[in-house]
Design a binder for these strands. Structure first.
Lengths: 230, 230
DNA sequence: GGGATCAAAAAATCAGACTTATACATCACA
DNA sequence: TGTGATGTATAAGTCTGATTTTTTGATCCC
């Protein structure tokens, strides 16, 4: 997404760094980078500032722009997540995020059962039915769209802003799963019906049930990636 | 933390925006801001780029720098979290983060029971003992230091990078709790002993127990803030 | 060898000119 | 009167070159 020249620079420099092409401690010089991307120093500096705010690099006088160790990266930054999902450690990233989902979504579902509005309950049911309708006959794209919408509604209905902001992340994970490794064939019927049951539980306001059912869903997601169920 | 002039600008502009002083849709002009902070336009532009990467503002030609609605902010950015914790909606932020903790930490503890190294187990025990030793006699600061270290070790030992990066967030929450509203007096003895038991469970490799015990801890944290236990 | 001094390097800052996209108003035409 | 093309002012975007500041590493002196 070229939001200007500096954005264009980030589109190639960001993925390079997150892919580990420059090992931690590597030093880049702004002048050289500006030459390489054929932009002015000011544009290059803005790009570096953004990378710095993501804790991907650190800029110090007399030294240059040094790449930070991955342990310090802002791994929750949606941009960083996208870069990593597009790069070499896609698999590793998907696993991390799936574990995060397994922790967050059940709790979010429980909260949704308490806080969801009537409108959100209706949306949820609609999504679940859409999943059922597209669960057979290799209609993966339509199924995915409803699946993403379902989980997004849950996270939003939880009423917790931190959960709500994970909607995009979950969407990326679900899309990644469908488009890549797993899911060559139709989704498991039990998984589909779990979603319907979650929608019901939320509608009924049964927080405990909604949480347990969602936990079953996320355990399934973990098992798909051969991660031991906790 | 003045990492240069643009950092100095952010130190006042960031909190202002996250505090809601400029309602969503407000337009700022870079030239005016540059004048106000008495910096050059280049410095001001760098600051705006950082705010933009946090999704706090959006910069568009012929319009200016418009403040985005809070629902779009990168609320996981540690900088944004610090700004919000320092500002008006500190209480609201603490609640959101505590709910997030209640979802993440039990799962992290379960994983820690499977993945913790011997060294991490030792650290954990040390922290728990430190908490016990400082749980009486109004030694709140020493207690806090061990408490923070304890939860940080758990998150790191989980082996999940997304969990590990929440260490700073949890530290902020614990510190906020101690220094502000709650915790005028010594911590509850049951809460302290729960930490000791978690350390034991992790050492023994009992994932289920570690998870349940940690859930008890986080439920306590929720109740302190009058949040219904899920 | 250890501390003070100095010089080079790279980022940081500033100032000013120029470019570009676009929101908004204006106008012509149906 | 409504609608679409045209024009214009505006604020961000970009580039360039000069200048300042900080910091590293070397050099020198004791």
């Amino acid at each position: 997404m070229g939001r200007g020249l500096h954005g264009r620079v980030l589109d190639t420099l960001g993925p390079e760094i997150t892919a580990g092409e420059y090992p931690p401690g590597s030093v880049l010089r702004t002048d050289e980078l500006a030459q390489r991307f054929d932009v002015s120093r000011s544009v290059m500096r803005e790009a570096v500032r953004v990378l710095e705010s993501m804790h991907l690099v650190e800029s110090r006088r007399r030294v240059g722009v040094t790449v930070r160790p991955r342990a310090e990266w802002n791994v929750y930054d949606p941009q960083v997540i996208r870069w990593r999902l597009a790069g070499a450690d896609r698999a590793h990233q998907l696993r991390s995020l799936t574990v995060l989902r397994s922790a967050v979504e059940p709790v979010a579902a429980g909260l949704a059962a308490r806080n969801a509005t009537a409108e959100q309950c209706a949306e949820l049911t609609e999504c679940a039915l859409g999943m059922v309708a597209n669960s057979r006959g290799h209609r993966l794209e339509q199924y995915l769209r409803h699946d993403i919408a379902f989980h997004r509604v849950i996270l939003n209905a939880s009423g917790n802003e931190m959960f709500a902001r994970l909607g995009d992340v979950v969407a990326e994970v679900l899309a990644g799963r469908t488009h890549h490794d797993v899911m060559f064939h139709d989704p498991d019927p039990p998984a589909v019906s779990l979603h319907v049951k979650v929608a019901e539980a939320v509608r009924e306001g049964d927080a405990g049930l909604a949480e347990r059912l969602t936990r079953e869903i996320t355990v399934g997601a973990l098992q798909e990636l051969d991660i031991l169920a906790p």
